[in-house]
Write a protein that binds this DNA or RNA. Sequence first.
DNA 1: CAAGCCAGTAACTAAACGGTTACTTTGTGG
DNA 2: CCACAAAGTAACCGTTTAGTTACTGGCTTG
Lengths: 226, 226
Amino acid sequence: MDKAQSRVRGRRRSGEGGAERPAQRDPERTRASILAAATKEFAENGIGGARVDAIAERAGTNKRMLYHYFGDKEQLYLAVLEEAYIGIRSAERSLHLSDLEPEQGVAELAMFTWKYFLDHPEFLSLLGTENLHRARWLRQSTRLKELHSNFIDKLAGLLDRGKAKGLFRTDIDPLNVYLTIAALGYFYLSNQHTLTTIFGRDLADKANIEAWKQHIVHVTLSSIRR
Amino acid sequence: MDKAQSRVRGRRRSGEGGAERPAQRDPERTRASILAAATKEFAENGIGGARVDAIAERAGTNKRMLYHYFGDKEQLYLAVLEEAYIGIRSAERSLHLSDLEPEQGVAELAMFTWKYFLDHPEFLSLLGTENLHRARWLRQSTRLKELHSNFIDKLAGLLDRGKAKGLFRTDIDPLNVYLTIAALGYFYLSNQHTLTTIFGRDLADKANIEAWKQHIVHVTLSSIRR
DNA sequence: CAAGCCAGTAACTAAACGGTTACTTTGTGG
DNA sequence: CCACAAAGTAACCGTTTAGTTACTGGCTTG
C-alpha cells in the first residue's frame, strides 16, 4: 500500500563519511574472503545456525556480494564443502605410499590423516554437518564426484605388497583400513568436548594428543598383521 | 500505534468445530510426547535448524505447552540431551562385565556399544550437535555430572584380570580401549552418508554392518593382546 | 572520452521465528 | 455443585533472517 511512498525515500547520502574501507575492487580477493568467512561460520554453527549477515561481516564485505558471487546460502555452503574436500584430497596426493615399506607406509598414512584432522578442525565440523543432513549437498555435487581420487587404489597397492611379503593378513580390505584410521582420528577430535567433560581427561592436552597418534598407528598395524 | 486496536480483536470462536483431537488432559503423556518430538527434531536438524513450531506439531500439541513444561528452546534441548545420556548409561548398567572371561568381556562391550549406536541414531546426532557447540549444554548440566558411572572402573577391572592372566599387555589404558570401540562405531555410522557417497560402498547394507561389528571386535582385541 | 559493465554499499522487505498473551476447558476437593 | 487450579488453544508480537532493490563509482574498451 505505502510501498510507492517508502520506495521514494532516499537511499544514499553520498559523500557522508568518505571511504571507510578502501574499496577493494578485487573480485578474487573478495570471493576468497567470503569463502573463508563462510567456512568458519558454517563450521562453528552448522548450516542451520550459520548467519548470512555474520559471514558478510567476517568477510569485511556485505550480503550483496555474497549473493553476487555464490547465489544463495545453500550454494555458498556447497562451495565451502567442495573446497574443504579439495583441500584434503590434494594434500593426500603429496603422500607417496608406493615408495615406502608396507608397515612404514601404513604408519605414514595414519600419521598424515591424524595431522590433517588436527590442523583442519573446520573440515571435521563440516563433515559432521553434512552427515547430519545425510550428505544432501555432497550428493548434489558433480565436482566432487569427479574428484574421487585413486586414494584407495594406492592404499590397496601398498597393502598388497605387505601381503606378498607375508607381513599382512591376506583378507584385509583397504577401505576398512582407511576407515579404521579415519575413525580413530575423527572421533577423538570431533567428540573431544563431550568426552573431556564426561571422562574428566583433557583430550586436547598435548601429551594426550601425541599418545593418541601412537595409539592409532599401533591399533591399525596390529589389526592387519599376520 | 494500532496495538490497542489489534488487541481487541476476538480470540476464540468457542464451539466452532468441536474437539478435533480429544483433549488429552494427561500432563505426563504430553511432556513425554514433546520430549520425543524434540529429540527427533534436534537430532535431524541440529540446535540451529530445529524449529519450535515443528516440535509442537510433531508432538501433537502446541508451543504454549512446550514453554509450559520446558521453559524455552535451550532448556528443552538440554532435557533431550540429558535423557539421551541417561538412556545409554542405564543400558550400560545391564552389562555384567565382571562375570565374563577377559577376552569375551571386551568383545561383549564392543558388540553392545555397536548395537546401541546402531539402534539409537538420534543419540549419535545429538552428540555431534553438542560437540559442534563445544559441549556447552553438557557442561552446564549438573544432572549429568552426577550420572557419570563407574563404567570405566568396571572396564578397568576386566582388563586387569586379563593382564593378570597374561592375555593383555600391561600398559593398556581402559579409557583408550573404550575410545577405540566408540570411535569405530561412531564414525562408521555418523559419517555413513558422506562415506557411502565418496567411496561408493553402501555402508548401510546389512552384510557390511555385520562385517564392521566383527571388525570392531577384532581391532579392539588385537590391539590389547600381548 | 563516453558508454557500459562490474564491484560494491546500505537500506529495505516479506516471511519465519522464538516467545507471550488472552482466553477456554476440564478434572477435583471443600 | 461450584470454585479453583492446572491443562490446553490459537492468535498475536517483536525481532531476526534470508534475500532484494536502488543506487554509486571506478575500470575497460570501442
